[in-house]
Amino acid sequence: MSLKNKYGLLLFIFIISILSGICLGTKNFGIPGFFSLSGIDRLILFEIRIPRVLAGFIVGAGLSVAGSVLQAILRNPLAESYTLGISGGASLGICMGVLLGKFEVIPYFAFMGSIASILVILAVSSKKRFSNTTLILLGVALNFLFSSLVLFIMAVVKNDKFQSTLLWLIGDISYFPAKILMPSIIIISLISAYISFSGRIYDILSMGDEKAVSMGIDTYREKRSAFLLCCIIVGFCVSLSGIIGFVGLIIPHVSRFFFGSTHRKNLPASFIAGGSFLVLADTLARTLIKPVEIPVGVITGFFGGLFFIAMLLRSKQREI
């Protein structure tokens, strides 16, 4: 399939995901139905469904771009936004926000938690100049540390706050404060565009530090900038939807498979594919057993698990 056809297919998937997200739900809307909307229908569409589709798209897109960059610079196919301890930091931030008892501050604290975790990693790694593998292990260790703090807080917190924490920790796009949607869309889009235009840097970094240094790249500075930019994206994503796993892990692999390893091509593809995937996952979560809604993290986790098994089977065949 030519590159042009692949982009065409991606655009088609994008359109289908947006249309299904808007049209399907507790009440399904056909295209003709858009021209004869009642007051309630208008409220459902413009105040609930469209913002939710936009939030789902930008979160999926942001997590995918961040995951793609992290896999490139850490040269590890299992790296994603949450591998470096960002999810642990965000979870701790969410718990702190819930403890304060004010719904409005939870997204802000989730954002701060993400930033704090990456700043810890950067501070520690600036002293020791860790290798990629050590950075990932440090992130895993931080995840364990933050997660144990989260469990401690949940064990002693008042039970009425426990349920609020749970939904944030398993991922849900229902309850973001409307005011943070537009800033999130703008910031994530701008940073993703900047990252895409810097694609050549990540192509070089993905070849290894020695090669990159020999080509005049300051690897430490570029990695640090990349970490911070990914962290800002993930911070906004977490503030919109809580912790949604696997999107940043699966989509980079899929876009590399179809669009190649050149980041100027696969980063925009990751953006669109990741956004479309999460919108479709959220639509499924909303409609599978409606009116009961499944948290979207359950759907992405399910497909993420299947994807990994398929990936392992494929790699097993190559070894033989």
Binding site: T26, K27, I44, K290
Partner: peptide
């Protein structure tokens, strides 16, 4: 209880 369907409530 913890995740009611807002669209359904509106409808």
């Amino acid at each position: 209880l913890i995740d009611p369907n807002i669209e359904k409530i509106l409808s």
